[in-house]
Design a protein around this nucleic acid. Structure first.
Length: 259
DNA sequence: ATGCCTCAGCTCCTGAGA
């Protein structure tokens, strides 16, 4: 089973690239079974369900005008679908959850936070707390659980292109990392770090200043897996190829292979 | 550095992203 997460920064713009990427994965003999998308930036009526169906994917989606919006694509239908975080009031479309082939899959677009100390940062902290309280219960009901998406948080210096210059800036603050570690403490594992990785591995690069070409990026897209799934993990990689497209998203997909 | 790109929208500028 292969699972992936990709912040596409507008599905309207990126749809052809998503379809191409899924087709290329299938053609290579290892199709992606579940793909979580973030930043659809479209209302539900605009979601291209037919295009995904033609490509062999069922879809669940939770859109919103202009910002946010998430979707879960899967080769077999997702059941018990939940939108956003139960128990946490939110007017933004950030989370979609479903059970696929016995695995509870949560796709999430974590708040950006803008700047430490800002109102948006406080919202991010509250959201992270709400997420954790819900995940804690979800793990009890669904021991086989995957939490993947755009976390907008780095774990440590390994996830930063400039650990000194970016110290305490957004995505790299101690407060944000506290919440990330608290998720790990619930019994989740950063699947990417279960394996040897190239140095300076990132999942996002700024559009400006040739960020990708100079590999000035951050690793902020993560696939966390529960302890029950950990023995099944076989590989986790960032696929940088789509970032080399002519009009790419600023994020690259992250792909996990489970036995 | 109030900058640099990219995207959506009450679109020819602004807000937000990260």
């Amino acid at each position: 089973m292969r699972l992936a997460t990709w912040n596409v920064n507008s599905l309207s713009v990126r749809l052809p690239q998503v379809l191409d990427w899924l087709a290329a994965q299938s053609a290579s003999g290892s199709p992606v079974d579940v793909l979580a998308l973030q930043e659809l930036k479209m209302t539900d009526d605009k979601f291209p369900a037919e295009a995904f169906a033609a490509a062999g994917y069922c879809a669940q989606w939770f859109g919103q005008k202009t910002y946010n919006g998430v979707a879960l694509l899967s080769r077999t239908p997702a059941t018990d679908v939940v939108k956003n975080i139960p128990g946490f009031d939110d007017d933004m479309a950030r989370v979609i959850t479903g059970t696929v082939d016995g695995v509870r899959v949560i796709g999430a677009y974590f708040p950006n936070g803008q700047e430490p100390g800002s109102e948006k940062f406080e919202y991010k902290m509250a959201w992270l707390k709400g997420l954790r309280q819900w995940i804690k219960n979800e793990l009890l009901v669904h021991p086989k659980l995957v939490l993947m998406g755009d976390y907008n948080i780095t774990f440590d210096e390994l996830d930063m292109w400039d650990p000194v210059g970016l110290q305490d800036t957004i995505h790299c603050t101690e407060e944000e990392r506290y919440h990330l570690r608290a998720l790990i403490a619930l019994g989740l594992h950063d699947s990417f770090r279960l394996f040897d990785q190239p140095p300076k591995s990132f999942s996002w690069w700024d559009y400006r200043d040739f960020g990708f070409k100079r590999n000035r990026g951050l690793r902020i897209d993560h696939i966390l897996i529960s302890t029950a799934l950990k023995p099944l993990a076989q590989a986790c990689v960032v696929d940088k190829l789509p970032r080399k497209n002519e009009r790419p998203s600023d994020h690259a997909p992250v792909v996990l292979t489970l036995a």
